[in-house]
Design a protein around this nucleic acid. Structure first.
Lengths: 220, 220, 220, 220
DNA sequence: TATGAATGAGTATTCATTCAT
DNA sequence: AATGAATGAATACTCATTCAT
């Protein structure tokens, strides 16, 4: 299904399979466990991010990787395990632990701009969002959000309801990723980063402020 | 797959079938086209919202509705048509056309609170979000967002980059829906509406303001 | 399947349902048993001849006839019975009983020219040929051929192996019908009747001759 | 549908699998791609010839072949492709290109006698005739007849209307095949070949003659 | 290590048929 | 007499997974 993404994956494949390069002996090509494993990972990353768990077949992934489908089971055990391997936290949220609060907007801007916007490259968040119909994926997302935002980042926020404010930040991050990379709404998909950043600040910085929500309730 | 949600659907079915409210015996209701149709719609609504398009089988939906799977084809023509019938715009965004800007936060608050939070009821947005791996769904989402936000709502915003700001609003709406109803992150899933509202204002109202992004760039 | 042949059938339908004609009261239109029955027969005749038993659905036939599919069962009992009713001997071979032998070629010519060649009209033989994958149809064909040719017509032939010669005649009749009306091979489908007749004679008349096969065996 | 023809197919399978002719134990033959493929072909050949395309299910064919139905898709891609593989021209008509005209009758006699007459073996022409309700099959038959008879063989005939005469020959060939092998009319199904041949000559040779139709029109 | 042969459960969809109205 | 609601079995096809090589 969905044609092939072989061309691109082949590159990925070659990146980790530098046959014909210089120092690596050019003989070993098949029977290259590490290479096969990472080729599968690369292909899966792409497929899963693009089509979601359910619309990817193990065979398609294997074909993209240029190996036999049975190897998915040899190296990962199951389609699900492969997905887990691919969608396992990539340290994407790591910066949130130490980043100065006034740089958070810029970081979010970076995150939602990852990958070539044109061709829906494998964005780590998108992989999960695209498969958010799977209970397991949702569970992992909950754990991750809880750990990173509700517990981790919230602790760095002064003021009331830090937990909620952190999750609102997460919500925006996900929403923008979805609209910009998956749904590709007209403005978000095309706006240059610096413009986006200015508006992100407008919405985010108040949330990070110590006296948020401020006196905002008055005029409601 | 995924056992049965029959019990609940039966309720939905009856709840949305306001005929013979009290004295009609609730049994013997075969040969009731309208009832069957709406039972199927109800069951599909629930299943699709909960598991997404790919993880719902026509058979399961029919079983939930208590009818034969072939009736899906009699009444809707295909699984896809049934999904369309369920996910077709329900006028959810209608209020955005006339609502005073300072009530937008409250409206968002309402939207993301729709349906019993405990049991992941069929939220119209969630249905689409859960199936956002389907190209058709993504396409429809893009159309809807474009029409309602990028074109419709943006026109009501003064200041620069109205389109982008409108889409950022949409992004937040979707992100919060996702976190609150699907992912169920700890704070968002439990925070009472009025509390949520106060913080929503803090993030949203600046975006709606005529001189957004204001002088926010200074301290970055 | 296969679009609709409704237009034509409607005519058939009207032919046997002369509403708005002159002397028949224009009220009776629904609740017209005979009319419904014959409308179904007409539609079935067309469909079966065109697509064969297996590629016709009862619903399509009923739709062509402009009535509900259940009426097929009311009036005929089953799809199979409807097919039988349609394919039951129409006296097509009746002339073979008395026709002078030297007019047989001309008669065959007539038979294979029945119905508008362009639009594959319901040819009684074609109906059976198109469904010759059904055991029942084959059985009936065998009976019919046996009765009409092997027993009936053969008795009128002098000379040896009359039975075989009669069946060879039947074979040619069927083969030409198939090629001319179903397969529509270039020459047979377009050749005018009088030309065809001249060549039919060349092949058939020897078979009907009393001293057939004559001295044909010599040069083999 | 139609029970099983397993027993016979197994034979066919083994007969056409000339490996380990004697000493190889006939059991234990899994993981044998070529064997599986040809078993499927054999089973399909038989089923299709006997029941026609529409009355054969992929499952039944697979069951006859003793393998899983999914393998039909592995090896052929679709039911239709399997049918094509089975019904693809087998060079049956090849002899018509060079055969001396006075041996044509004998060749036809051979063709219509192919396969055990008793048990409706897979005759290449019968396969197509039995599925002549399919548009694709009819189309292929038209092409084949056109190429082989209307164009190829006709060129070898002297005299007028060669094309028509060639098609009349084809018609007879098909009609006899149908009556002899499918319908099994009493005489044709039992007559020995040499007798049949004598009468075939009587009908066919005149058609092949250079001055056909001769002066046959006089006595009509 | 890698391949590809084999499987069985599952999917959407169609259809002849029956039942209540 | 006629309708259309309902059913269940069947169909072609796909896919994750396992087994022999």
């Amino acid at each position: 299904m969905y044609g092939t993404v072989q061309a691109e994956v082949r590159q990925v494949n070659r990146a980790s399979d530098p046959r014909g390069c210089d120092d690596l002996p050019p003989r070993a090509r098949r029977y290259d466990a590490a290479g096969t494993r990472s080729a599968l990972l690369g292909a899966a990353e792409l497929r899963f991010a693009r089509y979601g768990y359910d619309r990817c077949s193990v065979r398609d992934i294997a074909k993209d990787a240029g190996v036999d489908a049975a190897l998915v089971y040899r190296y990962f055990g199951s389609k699900e395990a492969l997905f887990d391997a691919v969608s396992t936290s990539t340290g994407l949220f790591e910066p949130l632990r130490h980043l100065p609060l006034n740089e958070v907007s810029a970081w979010i801007c970076d995150v939602v701009s990852m990958g070539p916007t044109e061709e829906e490259a494998p964005h780590p968040l998108l992989t999960k969002l695209r498969s958010s119909n799977r209970e397991e994926t949702v569970g992992r997302l909950r754990e991750e959000v809880t750990e990173v935002f509700s517990q981790g980042f919230a602790r760095r926020l002064e003021g009331e309801d830090a937990e909620l404010r952190a999750e609102l930040l997460a919500a925006w991050l996900m929403g923008i990723t979805l609209l910009r990379l998956a749904i590709r709404s007209p403005a978000l998909a095309t706006t240059p980063d610096d413009t986006l950043l200015r508006f992100l600040r407008a919405g985010i910085d108040p949330l990070l402020d110590a006296d948020c929500p401020g006196r905002g309730g008055e005029d409601g």
